[in-house]
């Protein structure tokens, strides 16, 4: 196990290095620079500013400096917010995003599992159709539409929850979390339903029945764990979807999260913030995938991790 984790960490570092290099070159390929948007500068002033931020140096040198600083977790200073360190900016902004992401992931998967289980165990009944309907809505309605609808109906018309911003504590997070969770909820509900139905038709379920197990025992003791395995596989992509989803949802709800800052940074070519945020998201995703792989081994004994304890 330790050997496996060690190997995975090496790979993770390698992946991050590649992502950093790739983002760096992509960004440099974009037309314009952080300074070019404010066009009131004379050529002399421009050169002075470029020199200050090291933008006058040849690209390989810029890349070298950048990578060196990144190892020290220093992503430079923001261009748009005077002299603010990117690392600090991210840390200050990560809180709301993190809360939203985690809440949405929990609500999405657990809600999806419950919905999927109900659909599978009450196959071809009103319960099943209802859950299918919710899932279809969840998949086909984009999160931003859903977010606006929630804002309007619950926030404005109903008035029991804040329409936006991050000023009412946990209450502020409810609507964005729901908007964000719909996608994962729908996906996991469909997955669990399909898998449960398939698992319930397997021979080992018949054997469990032949042992005298009751319906509940069969569903939860025997079928559930096996139906969970494919869902774990899509947890990685689901989490990735949450990150991109949060970019939009944070904008709509005007939540001071990373996503909102990220979009702003792209608009003004704030290189250091873009890079820093990209790296932050990458680390997050890679960690999620790593956790998913570990979970896999726990749920499915057939997937023994390489170098793991063979019994």
């Amino acid at each position: 196990m330790a050997k496996y984790v060690f190997k995975r960490v090496i790979y993770m570092i390698l992946t991050l290095f590649l992502i950093a290099s790739f983002t760096f070159s992509l960004m440099k390929m974009l037309p314009g620079s952080p300074i070019s948007t404010s066009s009131k500068l004379t050529p002399n002033q421009l050169a002075a500013v470029e020199a200050k931020y090291g933008l006058d140096k040849p690209l390989p040198v810029q890349y070298g400096i950048y990578m060196k600083n990144m190892v020290k977790l220093d992503f430079g200073t923001s261009f748009q917010f005077k002299e603010a360190s990117v690392t600090e900016l991210i840390i200050n902004r990560a809180g709301p995003s993190f809360i939203l992401g985690i809440q949405a992931l929990i609500l999405g998967t657990i809600g999806g599992i419950i919905l999927g289980m109900i659909a599978a165990l009450r196959q071809n009944t009103a319960w099943d159709y209802g859950s299918t309907l919710i899932a279809i809505f969840g998949i086909s309605i984009p999160s931003f539409v859903f977010a606006s609808l929630l804002q309007y109906w619950i926030g404005v018309k109903g008035g029991f929850l804040p329409v936006g911003l991050w000023e009412n504590g946990w209450k502020s997070s409810i609507l964005p979390t729901i908007a964000l969770a719909m996608g994962p909820l729908a996906t996991s509900a469909r997955f669990i339903r399909t898998e449960m139905i398939e698992v319930l038709g397997t021979d080992y379920i018949t054997l469990a029945k032949a042992k005298g197990a009751s319906g509940i025992e069969i569903a939860f003791k025997h079928a559930f764990r096996n139906a969970l395995i494919p869902l774990i596989t899509v947890m990685g992509p689901l989490a990735a979807g949450l990150v991109t989803g949060s970019l939009v949802v944070e904008q709509i709800f005007a939540i001071p999260g990373i996503g909102e800052q990220f979009v702003k940074a792209i608009n003004v070519s704030d290189y250091s913030v873009i890079m820093g945020t990209t790296m932050f998201f990458s680390v997050l995703l890679i960690l999620v995938i790593f956790i998913v792989d570990i979970l896999y081994g726990i749920v499915d004994p057939r997937i023994r991790l390489a170098g793991g304890n063979k019994q």
């Binding site: 021979d203 080992y204 005298g212 009751s214 025997h222 499915d300 057939r302």
Partner: peptide, 22 residues
Amino acid sequence: QKIRGKDISMIFQDPMTSLNPT
């Protein structure tokens, strides 16, 4: 359920699929 597995039990055809893998 009280009879199955206690008074009457069954051996299935394919042992590769009749045991719970997890």
